[in-house]
């Protein structure tokens, strides 16, 4: 089988690796909608209690929480921007030196946004860790995604590593011919053309050749398309989807009444 290309998928033998990608997508979408509509950040953060057992069952617990390292810098700036400069802040928490003020509602807002981003990232990362991109696209085409769109998504994942390899080759080749990749700003900007020019020419050539190869295989014919990777919706999938949706609505309503 061809390699997946650019992907975070981790091959494991677990329950959540075998269920339909659409089921996991429903879980992810519900979490995203909840993270925008729940009334407070505590309700959003409590969703993490759900992902922990799911991640353990998927055998990817430590990987699932990896996004937090990437997000930490963003969160620091978020708390600075919103805590000190929230545009509609009214409740003052305390005065800081140099005439800055720390706003209580700004900090609350930052906490709300931070928990939204964190929960979305963790669930999103769990989703890609357990879902093979091929399965995702094949299950989406079954419910009506145009196959051309599916082709675009999967091909892109495959060719990104290859094209970045080509780019690296061009960079090395042009450097060995004496291209200035150091020096002042203007000089470096001038180096763009010799680097990207060959890549563009190659790209145009490739896309022309590829479209001929695809047409020779009846890419745009109207017939029924088949898929290499098979996915089907089982009763288990239906049960999980129903539970997820009922839970999300209940949790959403609870967060606003309590």
């Amino acid at each position: 089988m061809a390699s997946i290309g650019l992907s975070s998928y981790v091959e494991k033998d677990s329950f959540f690796h075998t269920i339909n990608p659409l089921t996991k997508l429903v879980i992810l979408l519900c979490v995203i909608i909840m993270s925008f509509t729940l009334s407070g950040f505590v309700y959003i953060l409590l969703l993490l209690l759900i992902i922990i057992p799911i991640a353990i069952k998927s055998k990817v617990l430590s990987l699932t929480f990896k996004p937090i390292f990437k997000l930490s810098f963003m969160f620091i700036l978020l708390f600075i921007i919103q805590g000190l400069f929230h545009p509609y802040a009214t409740k003052k928490l305390m005065d800081l030196p140099f005439g800055f003020t720390l706003w209580e509602d700004g900090l609350l807002y930052a906490a709300y946004i931070a928990s939204r981003l964190f929960v979305m990232m963790v669930f999103g990362y769990w989703f890609v860790l357990t879902t093979h991109p091929g399965d995702l696209v094949s299950s989406l085409t079954k419910i009506g995604l145009p196959h051309a769109l599916g082709y675009i998504i999967l091909t892109t994942l495959q060719i990104i590593p290859r094209i970045s390899g080509q780019m690296q080759t061009i960079i090395d080749a042009q450097r060995s011919r004496g291209l200035e990749t150091e020096g002042n700003l203007f000089q470096r900007i001038k180096s763009f053309m010799p680097l990207l020019g060959p890549l563009f020419m190659g790209s145009v050539q490739q896309s022309v050749e590829k479209s001929m190869a695809l047409e020779a295989r009846a890419f745009s014919s109207k017939g029924k398309k088949t898929s290499y990777r098979k996915t089907n919706i089982t009763n288990m999938d239906k049960i999980i989807m129903t539970i997820t949706i009922i839970f999300s609505i209940t949790w959403g309503v609870l967060s606003w009444i309590l």
Partner: peptide, 24 residues
């Protein structure tokens, strides 16, 4: 079809822009 095939390449170029800006 030519335009459809161009899209993955365009996306790849978007993604590797960072590679060049790092090199320069």
């Amino acid at each position: 079809t030519t335009a459809l095939v161009l899209i993955p390449i365009g996306i790849a170029i978007n993604q590797i822009g960072r590679l060049i800006s790092t090199a320069l």
